[in-house]
Design a protein around this nucleic acid. Structure first.
Lengths: 249, 249
DNA sequence: CGACTGTTTGAAGACGATCAACCCCTGTGG
DNA sequence: CCACAGGGGTTGATCGTCTTCAAACAGTCG
């Protein structure tokens, strides 16, 4: 498989164009169901703070820290995880450009997990109290917040259930593919920027199992893979494998 | 083990006292962090609709149905679940009096799961659009909604990870115990109103495995159980077993 | 009392985890 | 340019836990 170039999203970083964030940030796409609302955007823009770059391994927030902001990923990959009493890690999620991190912290008012940069990460920081105030004034923002938080319930619910290693990996690939393609990247060929152990951990599998399933899928012609670059060769079969986990009935 | 009487919550049903719902409903306890806000309560009360009773097996809502309301359980037990393409059921959650059902439907604007009554159920129905409007006017209600929805992310996240059957069941019992005791019921002795199959399904275990783990725990003196009535005989050990799953680090 | 559902028990099998070794790529220093 | 070290990833062999299949059992309701 030839080397894939520029498959991984790295949208333009702060160039001083105030409106630019909309193309990357969720609020640019989700906030305003019926097109752009200039006033809402302008108000939103006031409370945005660009932070970063973070380098691979840098902490974005950690468990127990007081909650005061949510983050929208502008570039790179963010991983959230928790540590149990014995120091074992449990990966909770990966966040790619356009996605929001930290919504699970609203309830306890403290971040309930750690967030780290997997590669070079740029973020938008939204003060949550300020957003809430704005939300009370602008219905479309309130609605968007409700929906975004609610969406994370569904995301967290995916994967509940008893699935084979093959179903899990297929679902992971299909879901990843869809999230990238919804942002304009190729659904067929993309990069998995995280390491195998993190994928395995996220899927509640042993790294060895992930490796073996990848091999099996490669042998069966479902995927082609070279290091972290993937091509979905048989998306239909993968989707069928993933369907029950992703609840496509 | 002698028969347990009145262990299962069945709070008083509609008696015409307008303020009464506060003792059962989440909004009575969570809405107003610093005590009761009479005006907010009065406004809330206008958009509440008491529905029920539902009998065991009655559908409350079903997958794909347009979302327009959330429900607070006043009495009985509600189960949510999804069906995959092969008709297999996956239980997503159990909701006991005081808990809210339907928050995961905000995002897709359709209920993403089915909800049924496990026993005799009484509900408060909240029109969501009306609540959102009210939330824009009353900050404490908006804040509560954000927190309640966010809380469900954390709830859905529990159980992610690779745990033994023993850890799962211990976590289930401890969690159930805490939810009941936070509402004034005994933390030590209570009823599990759902059937074993549903517990097993919820925990992603085979019913047979649940049965065996129960036997093991009984033999080891951790619990005493008779049909659906449980006594936690060694809560400390159970909590230790459950700690990593429930993320008590 | 008898049929049905829900639950328990037992024996056999499958799937993934674990342990151990090896491989490959990268970066480093001589 | 090559030798080496180290992390991440792959492969193989064995073990354990949970599932599956089958049957018996218990409680409930007609």
């Amino acid at each position: 498989m030839e080397t894939l170039l520029n498959l991984w999203p790295h949208p333009p970083v702060d160039d001083g164009d105030a409106a630019r964030f909309c193309s990357t940030c969720v609020f640019g796409r989700l906030c305003l169901p019926d097109g752009y609302d200039k006033r809402a955007l302008a108000d939103l823009h006031c409370l945005i703070e660009h932070v970063g770059p973070f380098r691979a391994g840098d902490e974005i927030f950690h468990t127990g820290e007081a909650f005061n902001a949510i983050f929208s990923v502008r570039a790179g990959l963010v991983k959230t995880y928790v540590l149990d009493d014995k120091g074992r890690e449990q990966v909770l999620g990966f966040y790619t450009p356009g996605e929001l991190v930290g919504l699970n912290a609203i309830y306890p008012a403290r971040y309930p997990c750690n967030a780290v940069a997997v590669d070079t990460v740029m973020l938008c920081r939204f003060s949550f109290p300020a957003m809430a105030t704005l939300a009370a004034r602008i219905p479309s923002i309130q609605e968007t917040l409700f929906r975004l938080i609610s969406k994370d319930i569904g995301t967290a619910t995916l994967g509940k259930g008893d699935y084979s290693a093959e179903e899990r990996l297929a679902a992971f690939l299909v879901n990843w593919s869809e999230r990238l393609s919804s942002r304009g990247y190729s659904a067929r060929r993309f990069v998995l920027p995280m390491q195998r152990t993190d994928i395995a951990n996220y899927l509640s599998l042993a790294p060895e199992t992930v490796s073996r399933v990848i091999r099996r899928m490669t042998d069966e012609g479902l995927i082609a893979i070279d290091r972290r670059e993937v091509e979905l060769r048989d998306p239909e079969t993968l989707e069928r494998l993933a369907s029950s986990l992703l609840r496509r009935g």
